[in-house]
Structures are given as structure tokens and as C-alpha cells.
Amino acid sequence: MATIKQFEDLLIWKDARSLVQLVYAYCNNINDKSFTNQMQRAAISIMNNIAEGFERSSDKEFYRFLDIAKASCGEVRSMSYLASDLHYMSSDQSRELEFKSRLLSGSIYNMMKYLK
């Protein structure tokens, strides 16, 4: 396995970045700004916690930040259900966010297992 030297090389960070872009695209036409702000912040939290944890000085710290990122995946997934319930997003958009956040959560969990 190649040594990862920067967080930008991590697949989980790249996937989190893609999820942020998708959340922003799907929230673009939602008029409930507090809802969109919360969902966008949760998605950004995933990406930034992966980056910040990687930049920490130990695997233990990285693990802690990955745990936070994983929790934020759950928040994005939960809000995607609400977006569908409130008809803020189409069912297809909501399902895509649910799927991608669940997949990313699993990938983060695998990285956490690797660090332990």
C-alpha cells in the first residue's frame, strides 16, 4: 500500500468533497435557509474533520476526528430524509444523498478499523 502523504490523497476525503458538492447542488433551490445551512455545514464537517484529523500528530487523534466525520455522515443522511419528507428535494435526490452518505460512513469506519 502506498504511503499517503497528504489528506488530499485520501479516497474518503475525495468522496466527502464530492458529497459536499452534491449537497450544495441539491440545496441550491431550497428557500429554507436554516435547513440548507445545517445540511451544508454537516457535509462540510465530514470533509474538514477528515482533513483536520489527518493533519494531527497521531493515529489516535485521526481516529477521533474520523469518528466526528462519521457522525456528520449520519446527520447528512438524516437531513436527506427530512428533505424528502418536506418535499425540498426529489425522492431520487434524497435517496442519492442517503446512499452516498451511508457509503462514505462505511469507508470512514473501515479507515477507523485500520487505525486501531
Rank of each mutant, 00 (worst) to 15 (best):
F65E: 08
N48G: 10
E52L: 12
I46V: 13
A71Q: 10
A42Y: 08
M47S: 13
S57K: 15
M47W: 08
D67C: 07
I68E: 07
R77Q: 12
D67S: 13
I68Q: 01
K33Q: 11
N31I: 12
M39C: 03
D59T: 12
A43D: 00
K70R: 14
V76K: 00
S34C: 00
Y63N: 09
N29G: 02
A71I: 07
A43T: 02
E52S: 12
M47N: 10
D32K: 01
N28A: 14
S34A: 10
L66F: 05
N28H: 15
N48E: 13
Q40S: 11
E55D: 15
E55T: 13
N48C: 13
I46D: 12
N28E: 15
N48K: 13
N49E: 07
F35K: 00
N29C: 09
E61H: 08
Q40V: 09
M47I: 05
F54S: 08
F35G: 01
F35E: 02
R77L: 14
Q38H: 13
D59W: 02
N29R: 11
S34W: 07
G53W: 14
K70A: 07
N28S: 15
I30E: 00
I50Y: 14
M39F: 01
G74S: 04
S58K: 12
S57D: 15
A42H: 02
A43I: 03
S72Y: 02
A42D: 04
K33S: 04
Q40C: 07
R77K: 15
S58P: 12
